[in-house]
Design a protein around this nucleic acid. Structure first.
Lengths: 240, 240
DNA sequence: GCGCCGCCTTGATCCATGTCAAGTCGATCC
DNA sequence: GGATCGACTTGACATGGATCAAGGCGGCGC
């Protein structure tokens, strides 16, 4: 019998790709074992909702693989993506049973889930998890506030460059030198637009403009080569 | 000898105006006494910085009275106010000794301060404080993400109306009926502009436009009367 | 009272970005 | 191969809000 990929991961937290960055990162062996015993994996196919705003949400989770978005939508259909969730990012809110955002799988997603109640109890008793959770919350808060600067003050070009640099950073590429970097954009043009508070056409135009200026190359629409990251980052010298 | 207002407050947490909303809100008597023993008051005059970005910050604090802002500034001087802090709001980040934002006193400020290290220890041992802190962090995160929707998607008029309704809500007015409401704007036009991602002229024009439409009256530039809050809120029917 | 100074308002104009409308490109299916 | 479809790009034009500029108004010192 074939073991599914999910089952496979279940067997082995030690080799989990997000072991050292997710909610379990600051845990000692004892806490780690408890988390291990509680966890269960869940797959969500690309395009599907993980949870909808206002919905009851009785799990919290870490993203093991894939990309998700947090978003809010106005009644007349304007949408703002308020967060892009990458592997190791945390989903859900301990101490609250309903969801404030729409959470959508952008790609196929593997989630490492915990039922909320037992997880909350564990947070109470396990100081490593507790500290990590608090740190995650404050890190997210700082990130959200930084994004407010982007949404409120930056030009369309600066927004695009900021986004590209964010992807470069989160790609955690080993190279330190100013080698050309190739990145796969985790979001479609439409999702980028929504994340950056722009329209899809403006995103597309700015990407073309950066290409014309030699700051990026477009291998495909979603695959970008940055010949010189420091030159791209220099576009932000007035922002930041 | 005259006792200053700060000294006066020091003597009596029980009658503290933010007792039931600040970091101490979920504490039992024992925790409360510990906080009480640790706390010290600090006054900051209007216009002065509480802390600057990158600065070392060895205290955390609750706002007892007054208004402060969190903000970020680009190197070329564009500024985004990322948060408006009102009485009971929390300043600082346990587990981190430096400050990510500029924090400024908009009005004269009374802060209830705790040295960070002992406070962190108390967070470890006192579950009421710990829970409150986590809740505060997640509430702030939700608020920040809601603000991202405002910055990214709403029109200037919707932004202004959202701000006015925010002030109404935080004013915690006792009336439930649709009585006319009078509010004092905590921020100048300039600060409103920065908070809403607009320019001062646009803020001013939108305020005038709301006045012409009979949705608000301007007793002075900073003192607003809202004859019918539900009619004002109806301006947001497409947003939200 | 008068002059000064911040803060706010209003008007005229501009421009970055949105909107509307065609394409183009690449993948998939038959 | 060609039809189809979704994702992206490009062009032409419109516009909301920014920018530039000129007052108005209220508080404060003298």
């Amino acid at each position: 019998m074939k073991i599914s990929r999910s089952e496979d991961l279940r067997l082995d937290c030690q080799h989990c790709p997000v072991r050292h960055r997710a909610i379990c990162a600051a845990s000692d062996d004892e806490e780690f074992d408890k988390l291990n015993a509680m966890k269960f994996y869940k797959s969500v196919p690309a395009g599907q909702a993980v949870a909808l705003r206002g919905e009851k949400l009785d799990v919290v989770a870490s993203i093991v693989s894939g990309v998700a978005t947090l978003s809010k939508t106005t009644v007349d259909g304007r949408m703002q993506i308020t967060g892009m969730l990458l592997p190791s990012d945390f989903i859900g809110r301990p101490g609250r049973d309903s969801c404030e955002h729409d959470i959508s799988a952008v790609t196929d997603l593997t989630l490492c889930c915990f039922r909320r109640r037992p997880f909350e109890d564990l947070v109470e008793s396990a100081s490593g998890i507790r500290k990590r959770l608090l740190d995650i919350a404050f890190d997210e808060l700082d990130a959200a506030r930084n994004w407010m600067l982007l949404l409120g003050c930056l030009t369309a070009r600066e927004k695009i460059v900021s986004f590209l640099m964010l992807v470069v950073r989160r790609s955690a590429l080993p190279e330190d030198a100013d080698q050309p970097v190739r990145i796969d954009l985790p979001l479609s043009r439409e999702a980028m637009a929504s994340y950056l508070g722009l329209t899809i056409e403006t995103v597309s135009r700015q990407m073309s403009s950066l290409r014309k200026d030699g700051l990026i190359e477009l291998e495909t629409a979603r695959r970008v080569i940055i010949p010189d990251t420091s030159r791209l980052e220099a576009e932000l010298e007035n922002a930041e």
